[in-house]
């Protein structure tokens, strides 16, 4: 019995000794200037001026040029919706702007503003002379989101974007086409600065 006690005591002490020799764990923070983030995902959007949901393939890139600021570019390509006769027949949106960030360790939150444009066609184009014409529409967007950087190469993100759009030159329809878009998923990141 005494032998057993000694063995147990040695086992406990040795584990403590090994633990004491481990190198201190260093937390790694990835959120710093030079961080480049990019991804592509499927984003549903709710149209605020009509009862429709659209689905976009969304891509964005973001470059952190200051501890609290990033440039951000976004592209949204319409792939479909929940209506048989959707408002947009085709739609591609492009936006470029800046984001203001608040970061705690590897958790990052942001809010931003992006001027942009939309190249679109309407399904029910009421302008008789310009059937299905392609239109270039000035737009802007504002977004808010969060990102959690889990590794030096990828992150999880969630983002809400308000897209302001008014289509011109279409008669007898209400042509506000604002949307709220939700994007979420895995993003990819590298840091260009060591």
């Amino acid at each position: 019995m005494g032998k057993t006690k000694v063995i147990v005591l040695i086992a406990l002490v040795s584990s403590v000794m090994v633990r004491a020799q481990e190198e201190p764990i260093q937390e790694k923070y990835y959120v710093r200037p030079g961080l480049i983030t990019s991804t592509a995902t499927i984003s549903p959007s709710i149209m605020l001026n009509r009862n429709q949901i659209n689905y976009y393939v969304t891509g964005f890139w973001q470059i952190r040029f200051h501890k609290n600021l990033t440039f951000r570019g976004e592209g949204h390509y319409l792939t479909g919706g929940n209506k048989d006769i959707p408002y947009f027949r085709n739609n591609f949106r492009g936006h470029f702007g800046v984001e203001l960030h608040k970061s705690v360790k590897n958790f990052d939150s942001y809010i931003g503003f992006m001027p942009g444009f939309s190249v679109l066609q309407l399904t029910e184009d009421r302008s008789l002379a310009d059937e299905q014409m392609t239109r270039f529409v000035p737009t802007f967007s504002a977004n808010i989101g969060v990102t959690y950087y889990v590794w030096k190469y990828f992150n999880f993100f969630a983002n809400f974007t308000y897209l302001n759009t008014t289509v011109r030159g279409v008669t007898q329809t209400y042509n506000r086409a604002d949307e709220i878009m939700l994007s979420a998923g895995i993003g990819f990141n590298i840091n260009a600065k060591r």
């Binding site: 030079g34 470059i63 040029f65 600065k193």
Partner: peptide, 10 residues
Amino acid sequence: LLLIPWIGYS
């Protein structure tokens, strides 16, 4: 346009 932000970032 893509390179402009790189010119002097951070």
